[in-house]
């Protein structure tokens, strides 16, 4: 499987993402600078964490207007997988690929620690190797991870089973403890916690392995 890790000015988890799929899982991956990029030859697109454009205006807002996001939308409309983590999740909501918005953490602090998550839906291409209800540990590292959407959208997310991960102990004020959601079609996942930093036991957790393995197995089964 061939991944593109899209790099914006200010991305800082791009190398972690690359390391996760290339070095840990042995798949093909390339770091793709957001300008003059061509995403048509990749099986999966990874939008990494960081502070694209210094979080100017709103986190992810400026990156969401870049040309490369038109290609990400095109890729997503073909049913191909897109994963946005942290700032990548913010870019996905700002670009309209996922509903809702990420706001300042309720306690106003930047938080950087491990969190326990609950797998709410294991019927996605990203989570089929987990079991529903499984508790996993991923690091979080964000100041603006407080997921917000209106009640109507929340009801829709619940009805369509789009809530994929929730926090066991909500650290940031997200509605319904939401840590990660997919789009209606199920091929675009956005999440604040970092699965790409949970790939090796030595570094605290390898619970992220199953996420990438689920995706890789799914894509390889289709090809």
């Amino acid at each position: 499987m061939k991944f593109a890790v899209v790099v914006f000015p200010g991305s800082n988890c791009d190398r972690d993402m690359y390391h996760a799929v290339k070095d840990v899982l042995g798949e093909e991956a390339e770091l793709v600078w957001y300008e003059n990029s061509n995403l048509s030859n990749y099986d999966g697109i990874l939008l990494p964490g960081g502070f694209s454009y210094g979080d100017y205006l709103r986190s992810g807002a400026v990156a969401a207007t870049s040309n490369v996001m038109e290609q990400v939308k095109e890729h997503a409309s073909l049913g191909k997988p897109v994963l946005g983590v942290c700032n990548g999740f913010q870019v996905l909501t700002e670009s309209g690929l996922l509903p809702g918005a990420l706001m300042r953490n309720k306690n106003l602090s930047f938080m950087c620690h491990q969190e326990e998550l609950v797998v709410k839906n294991n019927e996605t291409i990203f989570t089929s190797s987990y079991s529903t209800g499984e508790i996993i540990r991923f690091p979080i590292a964000h100041g603006e991870g407080n997921y917000y959407c209106d009640e109507e959208t929340l009801a829709e997310l619940k009805n369509n089973n789009q809530i994929v991960f929730t926090y066991k102990n909500n650290p940031n004020g997200s509605v319904s403890d939401i840590a990660g959601i997919v789009n209606k079609q199920g091929n675009v996942l956005g999440m604040m916690p970092h699965p790409e930093r949970a790939m090796e036991k030595l570094l605290g957790s390898d619970d992220g392995l199953k996420l990438f393995q689920s995706l890789i197995n799914k894509v390889k089964a289709v090809v």
Binding site: L57, R58, V62, T65, T93, E94, G100, A101, M103, Y148
Partner: peptide
């Protein structure tokens, strides 16, 4: 609508 404000929030 497109950039300066996020209509969700």
């Amino acid at each position: 609508d497109k950039l300066l404000a996020n209509p969700v929030i």
